[in-house]
Design a protein around this nucleic acid. Sequence first.
DNA 1: AATGAATGAGTTTTCATTCAT
DNA 2: GATGAATGAAAACTCATTCAT
Lengths: 191, 191, 191, 191
Amino acid sequence: MPKLGMEPIRRAALVKATIDVIGAQGSLDVTVSQIAKKAGMSSALAHHYFGGKDQIFLAAMQQILRDFGAEVRTALRAARTPRARAEALISASFAPSCFDPATVSAWMTLYAQATTQPEMHRLLRLYQRRLQSNLTHALRPLSPRPEADAETLGALIDGLYLRAALARDRNAETALATALSVLDRLTGGQK
Amino acid sequence: MPKLGMEPIRRAALVKATIDVIGAQGSLDVTVSQIAKKAGMSSALAHHYFGGKDQIFLAAMQQILRDFGAEVRTALRAARTPRARAEALISASFAPSCFDPATVSAWMTLYAQATTQPEMHRLLRLYQRRLQSNLTHALRPLSPRPEADAETLGALIDGLYLRAALARDRNAETALATALSVLDRLTGGQK
Amino acid sequence: MPKLGMEPIRRAALVKATIDVIGAQGSLDVTVSQIAKKAGMSSALAHHYFGGKDQIFLAAMQQILRDFGAEVRTALRAARTPRARAEALISASFAPSCFDPATVSAWMTLYAQATTQPEMHRLLRLYQRRLQSNLTHALRPLSPRPEADAETLGALIDGLYLRAALARDRNAETALATALSVLDRLTGGQK
Amino acid sequence: MPKLGMEPIRRAALVKATIDVIGAQGSLDVTVSQIAKKAGMSSALAHHYFGGKDQIFLAAMQQILRDFGAEVRTALRAARTPRARAEALISASFAPSCFDPATVSAWMTLYAQATTQPEMHRLLRLYQRRLQSNLTHALRPLSPRPEADAETLGALIDGLYLRAALARDRNAETALATALSVLDRLTGGQK
DNA sequence: AATGAATGAGTTTTCATTCAT
DNA sequence: GATGAATGAAAACTCATTCAT
């Protein structure tokens, strides 16, 4: 068995460490040194593998979105009806993992940085398009205007998440219930 | 007799400069020196009048929310029916001034900082509660569940704003239309 | 009655304020603004009357030494014998007023600044010469080597004060007792 | 393999530079930049190795006391009789190295800072206790009240040092002679 | 006489980044 | 592949001092 290149291992460790550190201190004001230390290596090595702080951050965001995407896919796979698929998409957005402090901070960072950093902007758009496309597909059999309703639902999800994430009292359930009730209205309660 | 009454002038100038600088560079990574320079004074004076960077920021955010609040009140005053009041609230959220780059950056900053800075968190909650209260009041004659619908509309507005603000192509109108159409559905189209 | 010039009043207020502020915060790291505020005037006025921070400090030190000198003279006036005079000189050095935090800080400052600031050095020498002269005079009828013994006693007083002042547990009495017992030995217990 | 083991070297260089700079300018108002420059490195590195200015200062003071302690131990080792030990302790306090401008400034700084900085206070107490203990031990066979006499001698040494150090005309010898003569009196001239 | 206004020069401190080994 | 060493550049903040009124 050949000795594996360290690169993917190191990169993964750094990405995980980034998310951990952001979560631990609930803020994006983390230093490369903190991240590298958490990942068990020198900050010089972090630079070596990523080139710079921005890219480490970017990779961490990508990872979070990738994780989220995976959860969504898993949920979708288990859903047997269009209605179930729509519900799965909504539920995934309010899953406990989405309210992990690290995830919340990362999302807020993403929003804030999307105004200036093209890469972050691209990432955010990617997430939005994917959600839009998934929702549209699920709503097609249920709604006369699937695109428009998907847009509405997507925005509603984001807005509800924003509020639930920033409220100290974890009311993810309320947010979820609200979103599902809107789904009901949009689809006339069809299953 | 010394030159008198500069404090409010300087403070206002600094607040304006803060918004300008954030808007101009589309990012929250602005320094006190940049702000002070833009406001035509030394950074020392900025510290003298505000005490520190955080407080300058806070004052700027408060100003933005105050401006927004004023616009909302003006719009409400012209509205003669509950329906018109609801529309006014929604329209105000998608007014051109809300899409000014400085305003957008400020909002994103607010979201990002609310996770850690208690003052910013308080400010954001204040905005949310005010919107919620205004919407509930407007919906009371139109909806059987005014609180729940206000919550839905509030979150929808935030979500739509987020998307419209971050999309480079200015589609505030689409967002507005979407929000109004949801208002229609929630109220059964009553006027 | 002519309206008195403000100058002496302001200067006195500033000197007092300086001592107060140093005492209150137990450190020489006080700003002109703090002092001026305490004295109820603007820092600009403080500069106007004193020319600069160093001079304010110097005046404060002079005041402390002047106060100490006055106490010494009062004590000497009440002393009827050489022995009583020597005791008065020693007692004055360990009077409660000498252990006032402001006084202690001022003395330490004086020592520290005497290495560089000629004015402070002069002031310290003045104090030392005066003590030396007073002690010598008091010891002349009691000791075969009044100068040498005065030197010894003077240094001992300084050393004991240094230790008592820096010890948190106020042991001025012990220090005083030690000094007096050495006086006894030097003079063979003569009264 | 990176260059290794610089930490102790850098730390030692910084400590030495601190003492040098304080000595050269005879004042405690030295900046980290000055120290770092003298030590041939960037101020950032100084912070990296020490964490902050206060800790650099503290380390410098500790070094001075350590050096002094070493001199004392060396002198004690050569002393064969109690009397010789007492003389050694006294002589060490008036050794030429104690009158090096840097050392004098450092001592004055120590006194001045001991009123506010707990670490400095601890350091000073440590020195005082060590001297006290050494003197007591040496005086035990010579004096009926070794503790009290040690206290007297210790304070006398401090007071004489203070005066000699601050007098521009180097009269360390006179101070030493005075201290030794008091030792004689306290011990009845025993050898 | 008095002061609010204003600042320049300086301080400590932080950190992403580079480099020699 | 890996790291300790090192720094430049910049940040926030402070304060004695000056000035116009």
